[in-house]
Design a protein around this nucleic acid. Structure first.
Lengths: 338, 338
DNA sequence: ATATGATATGACAGCGCTGTCATATAAACC
DNA sequence: GGTTTATATGACAGCGCTGTCATATCATAT
């Protein structure tokens, strides 16, 4: 049926172990035998059986990515980052989807992953039950790294971007354009990124001697629809804001749509700013001014941390913050006086 | 380290084989022993080792997803569909990326997957070499299902949506609004979905006694940027179209942006219609009139077909077309006379 | 020539599980 | 009671590979 190690060994006239040495690039193999073996492998079209290797090694080389619903762009970015480091270090990524509304599922999924002898986990920000997840993982002594954690728990490893300063820059940009009444639509309530982004906005306002009108702060949940709703409410205010910062691009896209609904235009009547720089930011009209969250870099960093944890004797940073980048497009403009 | 079958067996006071029977839900196990074993499994927190199972069984429970470059939204939709059925039926998805420009790679990737004992394949529309792929798969007697195939080969199983009629409806909608000069931006050249969508447009035009101006047909490639470029060119025509149908939503988003660049408004100056109904369609301003392509349903259908093929004795439909659905939003409006 | 390492290779057990086939036990029949 | 059939359980080999440890080979030192 399929070609095995022993087929190759027979053909090359060496022992199985020697073939094993060659395919695993071990030392102590004479150059001539190595060539013989390589030739046999090539002739037979041999490819090692991954399961047999894993079983024999007792080490799976598998990292589980636990993730909740997220935009495809986000997921692909994370996957790419993880896989790129994984390829370098010999680890593979196994994707497990979690359901926000079913906390019970956590144990089930972890059990399922354990069945595959997944060695460690990285997980994306969940909305409700990261605590459950963290506890379960700690109990089972699984190494893990959190991506932009919902809240920072002590002793946990995490990677996130410098949301506070990214947001600060964005707010500053608006202030420099002359805006003083700046609305803000928050992300999911208990998500730390949401709090940091708001904090950046507050600090920028304070640094420029501007008071924050608390009525201009609205509770969102990262979604387009909510952006739409909050922006409607904000625009209906007797003294509406002249600019709105949204906690992410999806929300900002909703704001743009609310402006359009009112028959107004962006940025002439309202400047809008997003966060993340997902593809949507470029594809919306007008293209969004935003802050690029380096998701790919976050993922590579997280993966490196995890791999280090799995190699005994390597020291590991437990928390890393990677910088974000302000990107100006066409959804923001100078305040129209009058 | 980790709990194994024999640990459970010892604790339950039965043989390993009996435990194996219990975890695999085989018949011929007395109710009392089954309970004993279950208790032992529970007490020990035993989880079967999947690789050992696979190695021993010689049956991998793996379905290969062969895919070419596609948008993240598409990929995730397909993955979700496949995984949902996979979870139900005990199959896992293994993703293999193929390169359009390197037909040789096909054999290599299939060989690679074969060594992992992938049992069957589903593949997304490639652009050039689906013939190579189909031939290779048939030669090796791998069951496979094509997703929205680039061209339908006899004897192959495939699932797609009714692109032609979806597009027909969309075009009809535009015609009923009074438009007669309707532009069309095609998708990737040799993709059957692109041809079908164009065909639907042509049939609608013909049915309503309208001539197609070939100069209004542009070659796109499914991308936002191309939509932007093609729309610019179309708008620069001496006698520009009053409506543009795009072969997908990303392209349509580009068209909307081109309209905005010209200082025109959509749909007043130009009606725009997309295809697929990806999230972007809702989030763009104005929200896109489009046709929903049930990618998720296509994927679940394909996965079900594949699983049925792998279970001997089950009859299988070889080709399925799932309906698409016209969705009217705000990017289309009546023709402004004069 | 003999001892001493350094280097290259192989024998073999076992990773954790399942398939096959044999066996033990209970139930059913003449 | 003895034979047949149905039902429940176990012994054992082996899936394809790697780790351990033993052995073979060769250059260098005495």
């Amino acid at each position: 049926m399929s070609v095995t190690l022993s087929d190759v060994a027979r053909r090359a006239g060496v022992s199985m172990k020697t073939v094993s040495r060659v395919i695993n690039n071990e030392e102590r193999v004479a150059e001539t035998t190595r060539e013989k073996v390589m030739a046999a492998i090539h002739d037979l079209g041999y490819v090692p059986n991954v399961w047999a290797q894993r079983l024999a090694r007792g080490h799976s080389g598998l990292i589980g990515l636990l993730m909740y619903d997220a935009t495809p762009a986000y997921i692909m970015n994370v996957m790419n980052g993880l896989m790129d480091i994984g390829d370098l270090t010999g680890y593979r990524i196994s994707l497990y989807r979690l359901n926000v509304h079913d906390p019970q599922e956590v144990e089930q999924v972890i059990g399922f992953a354990a069945q595959r002898r997944v060695e460690a986990f990285v997980f994306t920000p969940p909305c409700d039950n990261s605590a459950t997840l963290v506890r379960a993982l700690q109990e089972l002594k699984f190494p893990f790294v959190q991506l932009t954690p919902h809240e920072r728990c002590s002793g946990c490893a995490w990677v996130s971007s410098s949301d506070e300063s990214g947001s600060y820059q964005a707010a500053q940009h608006l202030i420099e354009l002359g805006h003083t009444r700046i609305g803000f639509i928050k992300g999911n309530q208990d998500h730390i990124a949401s709090r940091d982004r708001l904090q950046g906005y507050r600090r920028a306002m304070a640094d420029h001697g501007l008071a924050v009108d608390e009525d201009l702060l609205r509770q969102g949940d990262w979604e387009f629809e909510t952006g739409l709703d909050c922006a409607r409410a904000l625009l209906d205010l007797p003294d509406p804001p002249t600019a709105i910062m949204a906690a992410n691009d999806d929300t900002a896209a909703g704001v743009i749509q609310a402006v359009w609904e009112r028959g107004l235009t962006c940025p002439d009547d309202l400047s809008v700013i997003g966060y993340d720089d997902v593809p949507l930011a470029r594809q919306v009209t007008p293209p969004l001014t935003t802050v690029r969250q380096p998701i790919y870099d976050i993922a590579t960093t997280a993966m490196s941390m995890l791999v280090e944890k799995l190699i005994p004797g390597l020291a590991t940073e437990t928390a890393v913050e990677v910088p974000s980048q302000f990107i100006q497009r066409h959804s923001t403009g100078p305040l129209k006086r009058g």
